[in-house]
Simulated assay, not measured.
Amino acid sequence: MLLLILYVIITCLVAIGLVKLIDKFLPSGARIVVSILLWAATAFIAFLIYSSIMKPIEFEKEKDNRYKAAVQIMIDLKKAQLGYKTIHGEYADTFEKLVNFIDTEKFAIVTRRDTSIIDVAKNKAYNIVTDATGAGGYFKDIVIKDTIGYVSVKDSLFKNNDRYKSLNVVKYKNVEVPVVMKTSSVIRNETKLPVFQAVIDKNALLVGLDEELLAQENKVEDINEINGPEITLGSLVEITLTGNWPKRYGSNE
């Protein structure tokens, strides 16, 4: 913005100076040449002003496109890891395991139904004797699960697309940035629980863009922006799968 103001001031001073020069000091024959120079100078400075205005606009547009591509990878990775954990009870520690899991394994299709059965232990504790129907005694509610079939993980999570095969890298035009993934475990209430974290370097993702604006992006602190130098999903010290991006780039819950 300061640069824009400076350009405007310079434009005004140049225009005023040249006008005075033409009117007071130059012969009529030279006025045409000076007028052409005036128009050229005005056009050049107008171009500089336009460029200074458009630079942050173009940066924001390109930044948003790259962030959206990165966040889509994170969302797909989260979906794949949750599916893996459903079957294996832990998160996959390599991308190869995730791809193999999606390509080869299946989810069970389970039905659930509520029912009541005789609470034998409670009846015994109260010295209640019942017949086979349990009449006059206590009952307890239970949930009966039945497996009625199976569906492939790929059809369930990534039907009609193969994005899962490149979860380890963000690709946008000629930019390719690796996704760094780590797994671990934490202890909560004497229970060992799995955790994982994925990280994408913002500087690598925004390579080639204006360096001054990129430096500002790394320092941003705003709930509507991605704060810090990295795009992250999950944590190695907390039980969370939340991303650090705002919802305008995609779901982060």
Rank of each mutant, 00 (worst) to 15 (best):
P56F: 08
F101I: 01
A121S: 12
A40V: 09
V129R: 08
Y150A: 05
A92Y: 01
G83H: 05
F47C: 01
E90M: 13
Y172C: 00
V99N: 02
G134Y: 01
K122D: 00
I75Y: 09
K173F: 08
N65C: 00
I75Q: 14
I75R: 12
T42G: 02
T147F: 03
A80E: 01
A108V: 04
F44S: 06
H88I: 02
V175D: 11
I148N: 03
L167V: 06
T94G: 05
E105P: 11
Q72C: 11
G89T: 08
V120I: 14
T111R: 14
V129I: 10
D93P: 11
A121N: 13
Y150S: 06
Y126G: 03
S116M: 13
D76N: 15
K85E: 14
R163F: 15
D162R: 08
W39P: 00
A46T: 06
F101R: 09
D131A: 00
S156P: 03
T42N: 06
S51Q: 10
L157E: 06
E60Y: 12
V143R: 11
T130H: 06
Y84T: 03
Y91V: 02
D162I: 03
N123M: 01
G136T: 03
R113H: 15
P178L: 07
T147L: 01
A125P: 05
M74L: 10
Y138L: 04
F95G: 12
A80S: 09
N100G: 06
Y138N: 07
V151N: 05
V177C: 11
I118G: 12
L38M: 10
T133Y: 07
K154P: 03
I148M: 04
A125K: 12
K78S: 10
G83T: 04
M74N: 03
R112C: 13
T104C: 07
H88P: 04
I87A: 02
K79F: 07
F95R: 00
K68L: 12
Y67C: 02
A92F: 05
Q72K: 15
Y138G: 03
G149T: 02
G89S: 11
S166D: 14
V71H: 09
A135S: 10
T111D: 15
K171G: 05
Y84M: 01
N174D: 15
K171E: 15
Y126C: 00
I57N: 06
D64Y: 13
V175S: 12
I49S: 05
D119C: 05
D114A: 14
I75L: 11
L38S: 08
D64M: 09
A121P: 09
W39R: 00
